[in-house]
Every structure is written in C-alpha cells, then in structure tokens.
Design a protein around this nucleic acid. Structure first.
Length: 133
DNA sequence: GTTCTAACA
DNA sequence: TGTTAGCA
C-alpha cells in the first residue's frame, strides 16, 4: 500500500533531489509539511506539490513563479469573487505557457533546419566537394 | 543511521 | 543550492 506519510529522506530518494533542496522549498513557502516535534512529516498532498515544483523547475520557472503556479492548483477559498480571480490567474498562466510552447516549437524547428544543413554539408564533403563554392 | 538548524563557499 | 558542523 501507498503509505500515508513520508519522511524527508523518502521524498528525496523518490524524486532524486537532496533533502537540502526540499528544506529550501519549504523556506520559500512552497510546501508546508506537518511537524512531529522537529521532524517534517509529509502528507500525500505535500508529495504532489513537490512533484509539481520539480516539474516547474524542469520547465525553467523561477522558484517564485513555481510557488505562484502551484498555488493555482490548490483548493479554492469558496468565495465567488475569489474563484473568479483564480480563474483569471489560471487563464493568464495558461496563456504564458502557450506562448512558451510556441517558442519551444520554433526553437525545435530552427534546430531541425540546422541539422539538415549539417547533413547536407556532410554529404557534400563525402562526395569530394568542398561544400560552398 | 537519520533529521534538524544554521552558516559559509 | 551544496556542504559542513554539532545536536537530538
């Protein structure tokens, strides 16, 4: 069975990060594990947040940005006004990510073009020519 | 052995 | 963030 709680070492091993990094994220207010005396006790939800944090890191977001984004996933406060505000923020974030995706696709295309150019020159060299005139 | 805080590279 | 020190 999937355990109900985790120690900092468990999560560090599972996600391949140092315990130091996890404590750092806590200092930054991105996760708030329960305490048992001084020991940190992580609930499944903390584990999920950590997973989101690491994904954000892979996407190149600053820790501050990741903190804002992760908060968007958390349960809303309940007030209609707050829910609407949250929707606005989510929409804004989605727009940013889509823009980022477009840039990624453009970069991918550029790299593809560069690779094709390399192959072309390579073929020319193999044919005994010097490439460009 | 493991986790904790704090401070320094 | 990594590392290290001194505790519990």
């Amino acid at each position: 069975m999937t355990q109900a709680t985790f120690g900092i070492g468990d999560l560090a091993r599972e996600f391949g990060v140092t315990t130091r990094a996890i404590r750092f994220y806590e200092d930054q207010g991105m996760i708030a594990p329960r305490r048992e005396g001084q020991r940190r006790v992580f609930q499944p939800r903390d584990r999920t947040r950590l997973k989101l944090i690491l994904r954000g890191r892979r996407l190149g977001f600053s820790l501050a940005e990741i903190g804002e984004i992760v908060d968007l996933y958390e349960a809303p406060a309940g007030e209609a006004a707050q829910l609407k505000l949250l929707l606005d923020r989510i929409a804004a974030r989605r727009a940013e990510l889509k823009a980022k995706r477009r840039d990624l696709n453009a970069s991918l295309d550029d790299l593809d073009a560069a690779a094709k150019n390399c192959r072309k020159r390579l073929k020319e060299m193999e044919n005994g020519r010097s490439g460009k005139s």
